[in-house]
């Protein structure tokens, strides 16, 4: 069960009307290394991971949903008042045809989200290494997104999200170290 706080994890400001950026931000919304993929990946893997790291996956998976909200807020702010012409000029004509101004889980290229973006191998080491890789890829994506805008307000939000990827990556690496430790010698069954 979750408890919802009706506020964003970190405030989202958008300082510039730039519909083009909305399309690029979608990569972190419905892309392979995006926040939705991250949240679903961790909250699913946690069932079959050793008990010591279940809580970590639950906490980080939950936080990813908070990040998803932030991205959604950015995209919404950038598109809600855009004219059809502006949307088309920003490459969102096809999106409008399919979704009006609704958000949808697609990547920057308009490819819809798919469960094949995530994996649960059942092997704890394989799963945690995938999680580490996912955090690094998301960090890189945030870097390229920051590069693509000169809006300091959006950059501020994206820099916060990038930093969280750094922290999560370390936490997953720590989880690997915990699982490498000797556990339970000479148990009696």
């Amino acid at each position: 069960m979750w408890i919802y706080e009706k506020k964003l994890q970190y405030p989202v400001r958008v300082g510039k009307c730039d519909v083009r950026m909305a399309k690029f931000l979608m990569e972190q919304y419905g892309g392979a290394d995006g926040e939705l993929a991250a949240a679903l990946r961790y909250l699913n893997q946690r069932y079959t991971i050793p008990d010591k790291v279940i809580g970590l996956l639950t906490d980080i998976g939950t936080e990813e949903f908070a990040h998803l909200e932030m991205i959604a807020t950015m995209v919404y702010k950038l598109t809600k008042d855009a004219t059809m012409e502006e949307l088309e000029a920003a490459g969102l004509g096809a999106h409008y045809a399919n979704h009006d101004r609704a958000l949808f889980y697609e990547n920057a290229g308009g490819v819809p989200f798919t469960a094949t973006y995530i994996q649960a191998k059942g092997d704890p080491i394989a799963d945690l290494y995938e999680d580490i890789a996912a955090e690094e890829k998301a960090r890189a994506t945030y870097q390229w997104l920051i590069d693509m805008t000169d809006d300091v307000d959006i950059q501020d939000g994206l820099k916060y999200l990038r930093e969280r990827e750094v922290v999560h990556s370390l936490r997953f690496r720590e989880a690997v170290e915990i699982l490498k430790e000797e556990q339970g010698r000479k148990k009696f069954f």
């Binding site: 050793p50 092997d123 080491i125 069954f189």
Partner: peptide, 27 residues
């Protein structure tokens, strides 16, 4: 490595009390 997953008194099936995973040498 082995671990002992939580077993609920309400689990429907006989519990697997010990689970194990590999920590291969490259780690």
């Amino acid at each position: 490595r082995v671990y002992f997953p939580y077993v609920s008194p309400h689990d429907p099936c006989p519990p697997i009390r010990v689970k194990s995973y590999y920590v291969p040498p490259q780690l």
